[in-house]
C-alpha cells in the first residue's frame, strides 16, 4: 500500500507519501478509495510527510473527497507544509477542504460535526 492508514476515534487517518506524483498517483488513488469505502467516509489526510505533490497528487485528494462525500462524509487535511499549502492556494483547493494545523484537531473536528 502506498499510504499509511490507521483509525482514530472512528476516523480514518491516512498519511500521504513523501512524494505524490504521476508515477504513484494511480496506486495512491486506488488505496485511498478502498480505505474510504471500507470505512464511514470520515477521513483525515495527513500531509505532514509530503514534501512534493503535483497535479496528479492533487487529483488523488480530490477523488478521495468525492468518494467521502458520496458516503455523506468528508476529507479534512492536516499538517501541510508552506509549499504544499501554496499549491492548494494556487489551485484554489484550499476553498474546498477544511485544513488543520495538526492531525488531532482534524480528528476532533469530526466529533464536533456530529
Amino acid at each position: 500500500m502506498s499510504l499509511t492508514h490507521r483509525q482514530e476515534h472512528d476516523v480514518d487517518v491516512v498519511t500521504l507519501p513523501e512524494r505524490l506524483v504521476m508515477a504513484n498517483a494511480g496506486e495512491a488513488r486506488a488505496d485511498l478509495k478502498q480505505i474510504i469505502q471500507s470505512g464511514n467516509g470520515r477521513v483525515v489526510v495527513d500531509l505532514g510527510e509530503t514534501l512534493f505533490m503535483d497535479s496528479s497528487g492533487l487529483a488523488v485528494v480530490v477523488a478521495g473527497l468525492q468518494a467521502a462525500r458520496k458516503m455523506e462524509g468528508d476529507v479534512y487535511l492536516a499538517r501541510m507544509s508552506d509549499t504544499i499549502r501554496a499549491l492548494f492556494e494556487l489551485t484554489r483547493l484550499h476553498t474546498v477542504f477544511q485544513i488543520f494545523d495538526d492531525e488531532a484537531a482534524a480528528v476532533r473536528a469530526f466529533g464536533k460535526a456530529d
Binding site: 503535483d54 497535479s55 492533487l58 480530490v62 494556487l90 489551485t91
Partner: peptide, 18 residues
C-alpha cells in the same frame, strides 16, 4: 484557466503558467 473547484484534473497548465 483555473479548473472548477472540485474537478478531478485540469490543473497542470495552471501550475505551469503560474
Amino acid at each position: 484557466e483555473p479548473a472548477p473547484a472540485e474537478a478531478d484534473g485540469g490543473r497542470g497548465w495552471q501550475i505551469i503558467r503560474a
